[in-house]
Amino acid sequence: MSNVLVAYFSASGVTKRVAENIADENGYDLFEIKPVEPYTAADLDYMDKKSRSTIEMNDREFRPPIVESCDVSQYDTVVIGFPVWWYTAPTIINTFIESVDLSGKTIKAFCTSGGTGIDGCVNDLKNAYPELNFAKGMRFMGNVSAAKEWIENE
């Protein structure tokens, strides 16, 4: 068992592949944050103001239910991965954060995005959870060769 957990949410499979690569290449443990109700292509249509993801992201207090949580007590570092939705982390990330005890942990967020960086996402999470220790985040677009140094040294 490693001292690093990579927890991720992936709606389309992109973030899943990145998280699996980070975990596999570095010997980290992996946990998938799964919604009780999986997202469909229609749910993810950000152009549709009535799509599920649009409705959820317009209500930042909404917490989509997740299938299960996990025990993070044995980890010093928890890496949380997600796609960027509306320039920030999807609200399901808040569901996960609120379902585990991250106090005293180093939290490193990564995103998968073709255009939006991670800094705004991390700032939003820091503002929502000022008691937690969010470190510098990272955006990945496929190549995860920099992950180990970022996770273990920064």
Rank of each mutant, 00 (worst) to 15 (best):
D24Y: 00
S10M: 13
K105Q: 13
S113V: 02
S103M: 04
G137P: 01
D29A: 09
C121D: 09
F62R: 01
Y75H: 05
V36A: 09
W85L: 02
T15S: 01
R63H: 10
K136F: 03
I33A: 09
D76H: 01
A41M: 06
E154G: 14
T95R: 10
N3C: 04
T112F: 02
F31I: 13
S12E: 13
E154V: 13
E25M: 10
D59V: 02
K16A: 14
G115N: 15
V67T: 08
A7M: 06
S113W: 06
S73D: 01
L125P: 07
A109S: 09
N153R: 06
V67S: 05
S113T: 06
W86P: 06
G115I: 13
D48I: 02
Y8S: 12
I55K: 13
N153L: 09
T112E: 01
K136T: 13
Y28D: 07
D101N: 12
S145D: 15
T91I: 00
E152Q: 08
A41W: 07
G120I: 10
S10T: 06
M138Y: 08
I55T: 07
D124K: 12
C121Q: 11
S113F: 09
F140Q: 04
T15D: 06
P35E: 13
V84R: 00
K16E: 15
R139P: 06
F134N: 01
Y75L: 00
S73F: 05
V18K: 01
S10Q: 08
L44Q: 08
I151C: 00
D29R: 05
N58W: 01
N153Y: 11
G137V: 00
D124N: 13
S51N: 11
I93T: 13
D24A: 07
C70L: 04
Y8D: 05
E37D: 06
S145C: 05
C70K: 12
I80R: 11
I92K: 04
A128Q: 15
Y46D: 12
I80N: 06
V14E: 10
R52E: 11
G27T: 05
R63C: 08
R17Q: 07
A7R: 12
P64H: 11
R63P: 03
I33L: 08
D76F: 00
L132N: 04
R17K: 12
